[in-house]
Write a protein that binds this DNA or RNA. Structure first.
Length: 892
DNA sequence: AGCTAGACTTGGGGTTATTAGG
DNA sequence: CCTAATAACCCCAAGTCTAGCT
């Protein structure tokens, strides 16, 4: 279905954009999907249909894959495991991965989990695969799906149904292909996965059959497309949309195949995940064994191991992810899923990369409002005025109370003013006129009609549209931050030594662009200027960078958005690593526990530090320069940050990342308490608690315990395992609302563990007292109702209301009902107040975004029929599209 | 072995959009 | 419908960690 439409296509390119543009325009969802798919790959549209078909095939594929299955019932895929072998020959790796096929048994097609699995499984995998069937299907079946809650989709039943229906259709269209192909397909896909990156080479090397498949799948198409992209600069985007047709034509050979049948879409290896989970065990075992050896063995050995992992990890990339998206709508979520190109090779992050560079903030427009110096208006040049305005506008912030801020500002501003300027100090400056002007501008903006605002917004959109997308390996992906940071006064957090300094304007000459070799170089948007440098480095993911004007040693990067395949993949790898820790944590804990008494002071410090990182989820604590705020993490804790409270408690008090205060008193095992005592002895308050330790030593040690293990993995691990445990322990039967409360409660525990705080909103107190007031009012009402009830029972008329009016004569029954209603209202308000007070300093969002494996949440939602969108907002859904088809039984 | 540049993740706050309350 | 509260999203600072160099 979709396919057909896609072909039609003529959807204006705009549409495509829209589609992708996530959120905003859903309406086109259907189309979008199509377009979307198209965009991703030329072949894609056709593919969609195919993909469905594949599903059916899946079973057959399974058969093929059976070998895989043999390996482990569970999934085979775990690339990671494979890695070792991989290390040997990268190419092979990829292939292996592809096998992703996991599978499920070939059970019947009954819709159930099996189907789902199949879906995911399915297939073939091509690296480039596009979207996953599941979503697509859904969309196809119902355009409106977009609007519908994901939950529906997620739910097995729905999902299955859709799938099935789709399948049928697909099958009807071209069953044969599916069936036959599988065997062939599988291999082919695999290869693709690996080779996908180098089309040319791969083709040559690949077996013919594989190649054919590729073409059929469309992957081949994709490649082709990619190549073309190089040509025109902008075209790429458009191309993606329109391309297919053109492509087909252009590409002679391909077209037919793609168009016609074959479909096989590329599917992704979605299932990989599941497989991984399952599979992993075996792998894990292996790993453990290895690790064990390592630990015992010399460091060298361990080191080697680590490397292996890394290499292996890379292969992961291939796996695809799946996308949730629905289809077209993919627009909303990520778009494609594609797989990752990176093949086994070590570092390659992409093969083709096309984008339009970055957009600059508009030039300064002078307002001409004169500030005062010693009460007299002062003339300023536009440059001077711009900086004065930056300062004037910050009048209401806390920075204005800080001398450091003012000093730094004055130093930089004075350079612009010059020594002999009328303005000789900051103290006698009066920025009020500028401040007032700014306030009135703000007010004007506010007063604009919604219509005007809308127009303005659309104009901006139009301007920025071309910068919002990049095409990575033929797939259109959202760019994260394509806007160059505007000039301003540096707002460092905490007592930052550089606060208030002028962050100068960034110009094209500051910016290095990274782009595919064949891609058109983005036109410099500022006439007469040019980019600093153009690079074609496919071992990194950034599209552009410039050096931070405040600290030239630092870079500011432009990356793809969180919803992109590239980011999704690394996100998934992060969680897989954390899950791996689950298998090692027992040994790690017993190992450090033993070392609490170690005579070797370095070992003792490592043990205690690891304990704190594990138990308290502290950050590693890198060394910091003097020109940064003075904050600490585990390795940089000072003696004064830890207070012993006999007999066995430790009180922590320090400023962590972002100068957020960490205050916590915890009971610890006696050996730890004593170790701290020992570490503090003979040291001054400002000395390092762990004077023999730094993050590199600590991480080096951790890597001996588990491949790839670093300090931050513990945070991810503890956060996710906590969520998983709490959800599974506390979820009871009940309505959705109650289940959500359970989720939020678990989420809150995680936030507390990670010390994710937020500042109390300015209006918090006001809001609380307002609530209290309302409760009081209700209490009064309640009292009155009770009085009236008494009177009514005695046949007396109601009491006079407070304002003296007479009330209606109500029956006791009615009054009783009102009383219970009021009581319920009061209780609810009290509960709300409690949660509000409870959460006033806790930020739930950070852990959701960074620490909680989304698969835990998705699986839980599926199991308990909670619509996923009740937990994840649109951004999160897009970011976690790779996790959406997780098996409901998934456990972290 | 230690150092540093580089690259990428994590984080809170401010702003804007959406929903709730009246 | 209008205002207030809440949620979503953007911004960019501040961490972590790796790799390559000496």
């Amino acid at each position: 279905m979709a396919v057909e439409t896609s072909d039609k296509p003529n959807l204006p390119r705009d549409f495509d954009d829209d589609d992708e543009a996530p959120l905003i325009y859903k309406r086109y969802s259907t189309k979008k999907n199509q377009s979307h798919s198209e965009a991703r790959k030329s072949s894609s549209h056709t593919l969609d249909g195919q993909s469905y078909r594949q599903m059916p095939n899946a079973p057959s594929s399974n058969g093929q894959t059976s070998s895989v299955q043999k390996g482990n019932t569970a999934p085979s895929l775990k690339p990671s495991t494979m890695k070792p072998s991989v290390g040997i020959s990268k190419a092979s790796n990829s292939v292996v991965n592809t096998s992703s096929v996991k599978l499920p048994v070939a059970n019947s097609k009954s819709p159930s989990l099996a189907d789902k699995q199949k879906m995911s499984i399915d297939v073939k995998v091509e690296p480039e695969s596009i979207e996953r069937g599941g979503k697509i299907l859904c969309e196809d079946s119902e355009d409106d799906d977009d609007d519908k809650p994901l939950s529906c989709r997620l739910k097995n039943s729905n999902y299955d149904k859709k799938v099935m229906s789709v399948v049928k259709k697909s099958s009807e269209e071209s069953e044969d292909d599916d069936n036959v192909p599988l065997s062939k397909k599988l291999p082919g896909t695999f290869n693709l996965g690996t080779t996908s990156t180098n089309h040319d080479d791969s083709d040559q090397k690949k077996p013919i059959s594989k190649i054919q498949k590729e073409r059929e799948n469309g992957s081949g198409m994709r490649n082709k497309q990619d190549r073309p992209s190089p040509m025109p600069a902008k075209r790429p985007l458009d191309n993606s949309n329109s391309l297919q047709p053109s492509v087909k034509k252009s590409k002679v050979s391909v077209p037919d195949a793609s168009i016609k049948t074959k479909p096989v879409s590329e599917k992704r290896e979605m299932k990989l995940e599941d497989d991984d989970d399952n599979v992993p065990i075996s792998q894990r075992i292996k790993k453990q064994a290895m690790s064990g050896d390592k630990s015992s063995s010399t460091k060298k050995v361990s080191a080697k191991v680590t490397k292996v992992n890394k290499s292996s990890s890379k292969p992961f990339k291939k796996q695809t992810k799946k996308t949730v998206k629905k289809s077209g709508s993919g627009s909303e979520y990520s778009k494609s899923t594609k797989l990752l190109p990176s093949s086994g090779d070590g570092q390659k992050k992409w093969t083709t990369l096309v984008h339009n560079g970055v957009i600059f903030p508009p030039p300064y427009q002078r307002h001409g409002i004169k500030m005062l110096f010693k009460g007299r208006p002062v003339d300023l040049t536009p440059e001077q005025e711009e900086v004065a305005t930056m300062y004037a506008v910050m009048r209401d912030t806390e920075y204005m109370q800080k001398d450091k801020f003012k000093d730094n500002f004055w130093n930089d501003w004075r350079k612009l003013l010059g020594r002999n300027h009328v303005i000789q100090n900051l103290k006698d400056c009066d920025f009020t006129p500028i401040y007032d002007w700014y306030q009135s501008e703000k007010e004007k903006k506010k007063q604009m009609t919604t219509e005007e605002k809308k127009t303005l917004k659309e104009e901006k959109m139009k301007q920025e549209e071309k910068y919002m997308w990049a095409i990575v390996d033929g797939v259109k992906e959202k760019v994260g931050n394509f806007r160059v940071e505007p000039p301003g006064l540096f707002r460092g957090r905490g007592e930052h030594p550089k606060m208030g300094k002028l962050k100068r304007r960034i110009r094209p000459g500051d910016i290095t662009i990274n782009i595919g070799k064949d891609a058109p170089i983005p036109e410099c948007p500022i006439p007469g200027e040019k980019w600093k440098e153009i690079r074609h480095d496919n071992t990194v993911t950034w599209l552009a960078y410039w050096s931070d004007p405040i600290n030239p040693k630092l870079f500011k990067y432009v990356f793809l958005a969180a919803s992109s395949s590239l980011k999704g993949q690394s996100d998934k790898e992060k969680y897989e690593k954390a899950r791996m820790l689950k298998d090692y944590i027992g040994n790690i804990r017993s190992a450090y526990t033993k070392d609490f008494n170690n005579k070797d002071i370095t070992k003792l410090q490592i043990a205690v530090a690891t304990y704190l990182i594990d138990k308290l989820a502290l950050r590693a604590g890198n060394e910091k320069d003097d020109d940064e705020a003075d904050t600490v993490g585990c390795c940089t804790l000072k003696v004064e940050n830890v207070t012993r409270e006999p007999p066995n408690k430790l009180k922590f008090n320090f400023l962590g990342k972002d100068s957020i205060k960490y205050e916590n008193t915890v009971e610890v095992e006696l050996p730890v308490y004593n170790a701290i005592l020992k570490l503090q002895k003979d040291k001054r308050p400002g000395d390092d608690l762990f004077d023999k330790l730094d993050t590199s030593k600590l991480n080096a040690h951790l890597k001996e315990l588990m491949p790839g293990l670093t300090a931050k993995v513990f945070r991810t691990f503890n956060a996710s395992i906590t969520l998983d445990n709490m959800l599974n322990k506390e979820t009871k039967d009940g309505d959705v609302g109650e289940k959500i409360v359970v989720y939020q409660h678990a989420n809150k525990q995680v936030a507390i563990i990670c010390n994710h705080q937020r500042s109390v909103s300015k209006s918090h107190d006001a809001q609380m007292s307002k609530l209290t007031e309302k409760i009081d009012e209700l209490q009064a009402v309640l009292k009155e109702l009770k009085t009236d009830l008494d009177r009514a029972r005695k046949g007396k008329p109601p009491s006079k209301s407070s304002d003296g009016k007479t009330k209606k004569n109500l029956t006791p029954e009615v009054l009783e009902k009102k009383i219970s209603q009021t009581n319920a209202k009061i209780e609810k308000m009290q509960r709300d107040m409690k949660t509000k007070e409870d959460l006033k300093t806790v930020a739930l969002g950070t852990s959701k975004i960074n620490y909680l494996d989304p698969r835990i949440t998705v699986a839980w939602c599926k199991r308990h029929e909670v619509p996923i969108e009740k937990i994840f907002n649109k951004s999160l859904l897009a970011k976690f599209c790779w996790a959406m088809d997780v098996d409901p039984d998934f456990r972290f």
